[in-house]
Amino acid sequence: MTQLLPFKVGYETYALKLNDVQEVVENQTLHDFPTAPDIVAGAISFHGRIVPVVDLARLLGFPLGKIGQRLIVLVNQRGPVALGVDVVRAVINIEMNQMNQMEDFAERNYISNVINYGGEMMSLFDLDHLQRELELICLQAGGERC
């Protein structure tokens, strides 16, 4: 049994393994990060640490939502970094077997698998891919703001 945290960005429903999530925070003050690339919406102060916020809508090419209202803070091993999403739903329990995993995601980035949860399609968000992309983007960044 795996616990997943489903969330919505744009028109798409994604899910993260609950093990990768540290906390979901709401209504945080987003502070300006002046030299960051545009996919970084800013930073929040989270338990005394500065945690950068990635604007998932912008990263995935969806219309921009209002960032800062719902943030998923990933575990420290993954940054820590916070993901700005549109809606966070209740945690679901799912048996990760062949039955509900569909391997038709090859064309799309940031998705490691597609899951059928009682008829609803959810994309399992690929955090490793995110990490690699962020590394690239940050290396190239520096005061550029598009």
Binding site: H31, T35, I44, I50, G79, L139, G142, G143
Partner: peptide, 29 residues
Amino acid sequence: IQRLPAPFDQIRGCNGGTILGDGQIVFLL
């Protein structure tokens, strides 16, 4: 001054940041 978590510490033009007494984050240019 706090170092930023990787990979954000690679962003040029910024050497970390600090949280002021009122919770405001200020980045070091």
